[in-house]
Amino acid sequence: MEVENRKIAVSGSNALKAAARPLPKERVKNPEIDRQRKEERRKTRKVKILKFLKFNGSIVAAGVVGLTIVGRYGSIYADQKEIISLQEKIHVMKEESEALSVKLLKYDNIAYIEEVATKELNMIKPKSGEAVYVDMQNVEPVAAENNETQKGKNLFSKIKDLLFN
């Protein structure tokens, strides 16, 4: 390698005619310039960090909003499924109610009741002369308390009779 000039260095053979590049300048340490450069780097780093945080913060906020919306739609969907299920149950219950109403009307017919009683239950239609009519207004209701006290007295008197007789 030959050096033609102090400012330009030649690398390689002259036959290849390599490009000449200038020699690096010597750095002169100037504390004022170094301090200014450090401050500029700090400022640019702070600006980059703030931009990075703003960008990532907006992404996080968008994600939270998106998850909230998706969760809400999920709960709405579940509620709609439940509503549809309950409406189907209501429809089935109405059909059953109508079927029972028709059945009740069928049993309301006295001719049908007589037919079932005579054919399926082997009952006999009473004769008009053998029927006994009872007037329920003249019948006195029996009090339940009297029966309980009489049972207690009867039991006590039975025990007394067994012990002392």
Rank of each mutant, 00 (worst) to 15 (best):
Ser128Asp: 04
Val70Leu: 05
Glu82Pro: 02
Lys106Thr: 12
Glu98Cys: 05
Glu120Arg: 04
Val65Ala: 05
Leu67Val: 05
Leu53Pro: 00
Val64Leu: 06
Glu95Gln: 13
Gln87Ser: 13
Thr118Pro: 01
Ser58Ala: 09
Leu100Val: 04
Val64Asp: 06
Val134Leu: 05
Val60Thr: 11
Lys127Tyr: 09
Val60Asp: 08
Leu67Arg: 08
Val139Gln: 09
Ser97Cys: 09
Val64Ala: 08
Phe55Arg: 15
Ile110Arg: 13
Ile49Lys: 06
Pro141Thr: 09
Glu98Ile: 11
Tyr73Asn: 04
Ile110Gln: 15
Glu95Arg: 10
Met136Phe: 01
Met123Pro: 04
Tyr112Lys: 13
Val102Ala: 13
Leu86Val: 05
Lys51Trp: 15
Val64Gly: 01
Val64Pro: 02
Glu88Pro: 02
Ala117Gln: 07
Gly71Gln: 00
Tyr77Met: 15
Gly57Asp: 03
Gly71Tyr: 01
Lys125Gln: 02
Val116Ser: 08
Ile113Pro: 00
Pro141Trp: 07
Lys51Leu: 12
Leu105Phe: 05
Ala62Arg: 03
Val139Arg: 10
Ala99Lys: 14
Ala111Cys: 04
Asp108Gly: 13
Leu104Trp: 02
Arg72Thr: 10
Asp79Lys: 15
Gly129Thr: 02
Pro141Phe: 01
Ala62Val: 00
Ala117Pro: 01
Leu50Arg: 14
Leu100Ile: 07
Gly129Asn: 10
Tyr133His: 07
Val70Gly: 02
Ser75Gly: 02
Ile124Thr: 10
Leu50Ala: 13
Ala61Ile: 12
His91Ala: 10
Lys125Cys: 00
Leu121His: 01
Asn138Pro: 02
Ile83Tyr: 05
Lys54Val: 07
Leu50Val: 09
Gly66Phe: 00
Ala131Ser: 05
Ser97Pro: 00
Asn122Leu: 05
Ser101Pro: 01
Ile90Glu: 09
Tyr107Trp: 09
Arg45Met: 10
Glu130Phe: 01
Glu115Thr: 05
Ile110Leu: 15
Glu82Lys: 07
Lys89Phe: 03
Glu140Val: 11
Gly74Tyr: 00
Lys119Arg: 10
Ile69Phe: 03
Glu140Lys: 10
Leu67Glu: 12
Arg45Leu: 09
Ser58His: 06
Glu120Cys: 01
Glu130Ser: 11
Thr44Ser: 06
Glu115His: 05
Asp108Gln: 15
Glu130Tyr: 02
Lys106Pro: 03
Asp135Met: 06
Ile59Thr: 07
Ala111Gln: 07
Asp135Asn: 07
Met93Asn: 07
Glu88Val: 08
Tyr112Ile: 14
Val139Gly: 07
Arg72Met: 08
Ser101Glu: 15
Leu104Ala: 14
Glu120Val: 04
Ala78Cys: 08
Lys51Cys: 07
Ala131Lys: 03
Leu86Trp: 02
Leu86Tyr: 02
Glu88Trp: 08
